[in-house]
Simulated assay, not measured.
Amino acid sequence: MSTIRFRILLVDDHAVVRSGIRRLLEQHTGFEVTAEADSGERGYQLFGETLPDAAVMDLTMPGMGGMEAIRRIIARHPAAKLLVLSMHENAAFANQALKAGAKGYLAKSSLAEELVDALQAIVRGKTYLSPEIARKIAMQTLQDKGDPIQQLSAREFEIFRLLAEGKETEDIALALKLSGKTVANYQTTIKQKLGINSPVEMVRLAIRHGVIES
C-alpha cells in the first residue's frame, strides 16, 4: 500500500528557510513539497495554480506580505489549509492570522518535529497552535479585555503594522495592490478604532502590543 503524500506549498522570502523546511518534510514520508514561493503575491498565485493540500507561510515578506496573501487565498479558496510559520511570537500576530483564515500558527523558533505535527493536524481539518502561542493568546485574552488591536480586521492590522513601521500611504497601496484612496480610508478607520490621533500614538501602541520592535 502506498502512503498518502500531502502536497505542500512553501511561502517564505528566505531560500535557506524554504530549503530547511523542504529537507525536513522530505524526511517525512507523508509530505511532498510541490511548489515554493518567495513572496505573498507569488504564494497567492501558486496556491491557485497548484491547489496544494496545505501551505506553510511566513508573514513578514516584501510586497504583499503573508497576512494579505492569507486573506486573498481564503477569499478565493475558503477551504485552504494554511499554516503560519513566523518569527513573530506574540498573540497579536497569531490572532490576526487566525482571523484572516489561517488554520495554524507556529513560531520559527519551534522544534522541527512540531512543524510535522502542525501540518498533520491541519491537513486533517484541525486547528494547531504551538503551546507557547496558545498560552500567550490565553494570557492576552485574560489581561486585555479592552485590547483595541483585536477590533481590527486582518487587512486593517496589516496596514496598521506598515504605518507604524513608518511606511508611506503610497508604498502601502503599492505593496497591497490597493488604491491610495483605499489605504487612506483604512487609515482613518484604524485611527478611529484604536482611538489614536497621531503617528506617534500609533507607534507607541504598536510597540506596546509587540507589533513592531522598539
Rank of each mutant, 00 (worst) to 15 (best):
A75P: 00
A80Q: 08
R76A: 09
A97K: 12
N95T: 15
H77S: 05
L85K: 02
K99M: 12
A79M: 02
A69F: 05
A79E: 06
R71E: 10
A91K: 10
L83P: 03
A92V: 13
K103V: 01
A94L: 12
P78L: 03
K99T: 14
L106S: 05
Y105I: 09
L98K: 14
A102I: 05
Q96S: 14
L98C: 11
I70N: 05
I73H: 03
G104Q: 10
K99Q: 14
L82T: 06
E68S: 07
A69E: 02
A79I: 01
K81C: 13
K108I: 00
H77P: 07
I73K: 08
A102S: 04
A75C: 07
A92P: 00
K99R: 14
V84T: 01
A91H: 13
Y105H: 05
H88R: 12
Y105C: 07
H77A: 08
L98Y: 14
A102Q: 11
S86I: 04
A102Y: 11
N90I: 13
P78I: 09
S86D: 01
E89R: 15
A79S: 09
L106E: 01
R72G: 05
A80E: 08
L98Q: 08
N95Q: 15
R72P: 00
R71C: 10
V84Y: 06
V84L: 10
I73W: 10
A100K: 14
A102H: 04
I70L: 01
A75V: 07
L106A: 09
A97E: 13
L98N: 12
L85I: 05
A100G: 00
H88W: 10
A69C: 06
L83C: 04
I74E: 04
R76E: 00
E68T: 06
A75W: 00
I74Y: 07
I73C: 02
A75R: 00
R76I: 03
V84W: 08
H77N: 12
R71N: 13
A80R: 02
H88N: 10
A97V: 08
A107H: 00
L106Q: 15
P78A: 01
A107T: 10
Q96T: 14
K103G: 06
